[in-house]
Write a protein that binds this DNA or RNA. Structure first.
Length: 273
DNA sequence: ATGGTGGTGGAACCA
């Protein structure tokens, strides 16, 4: 039993995790992490595996929506859920981002309300390269899509690896990264809008308060994990009523470097709707 | 402490 993840009755548990290759994650013990947690909706990023492999690894107990990238072995996002979605959509904006494995949407009928869930994987980016242009294009289409998500559904939840730290609380060594992709003023400005005039709520930040972290990513190399020199770049962005229903947000950091199954830690949130 | 490591695919590229 995992006391920190004790689950209240009638709560909806949503987990998001960049798995850094689903096959590698399973080799490193992801199944053993997942089994006792009773997750209702599991959002994955960087799946980096063919569709058949995803179904084989996750197993029959899930409804699986998987957007494989056209480029083999790259990106890939998925939403695995215990309940069957009433509708699903792949991609965002124009056709350009339909085949890059970075955005999937699933709608769920919760009885009293309709919930839309998005698993998103924003580009890592790199200053002065076309990758950074792609990242801004993706953030631009996100700005356009986010309001639409709230038109039909009662609640909406956009989760995943967004590859930007919003504030100085979100990156341990932010002073050393102000000119690097992931903490550029231009990137952070998008998140000012997500959590400002667009009205979305950063659920983990809202529950944690104004403290450093909790980080969700650490470099593989050196002592970054042991020293907790991390970045909080994995989010659950919720519409206000849904955010108000969030009871706990846990970054499920592995107990040690050698027991982690990805360079990202899962972010697990329980909603009491 | 954004690659000094790691994953995918089977070299080179991505993060």
């Amino acid at each position: 039993m995992i006391p920190a993840l004790e689950k209240a009755p009638n709560s909806l548990r949503v987990a998001t995790v960049n798995v850094n290759g689903l096959r590698a994650a399973y080799k490193r013990g992801m199944a053993e992490w997942l089994a006792p947690r009773d997750v209702d909706i599991l959002c994955l990023q960087e799946v980096r595996a063919p569709d058949a492999v995803v179904h084989e690894l996750l197993g029959d107990e899930w409804h699986i929506l998987h957007a494989e990238a056209e480029a083999k072995g790259r990106a890939g996002v998925a939403i695995a859920s215990r309940r069957r979605p009433v509708a699903t959509r792949v991609g965002i904006g124009d056709d350009y981002f339909a085949t890059t494995g970075r955005w999937v949407e699933a709608d769920y009928d919760l009885g009293r309300s309709l919930l839309t869930v998005v698993s998103a994987y924003v580009h890592s980016g790199s200053v002065g390269t076309p990758k950074q242009d792609d990242k801004y294009r993706f953030l631009d289409v996100m700005l356009k899509r986010l309001p639409d998500l709230r038109v039909v559904a009662d609640h909406a939840l956009v989760v995943g690896d967004l590859n930007v730290g919003h504030t100085t609380l979100d990156i341990r060594n932010w002073k050393g990264n102000v000119k690097r992709a992931g903490f550029l003023p231009e990137e952070r400005a998008y998140f000012d809008r997500f959590f400002g005039d667009l009205g979305w709520v950063d659920v983990a930040r809202s529950l944690a308060g104004d403290v450093d972290g909790p980080y969700t990513w650490w470099s593989w190399r050196g002592q970054a994990f042991d020293n907790d020199t991390g970045w909080r770049i994995d989010y659950q962005m919720a519409t206000p009523d849904l955010a108000a229903a969030a009871r706990t947000a846990v970054v499920d950091r592995a107990p040690s470097w050698d027991t982690r199954f990805s360079d990202h830690a899962p972010l697990v949130v329980d909603y009491q709707l």
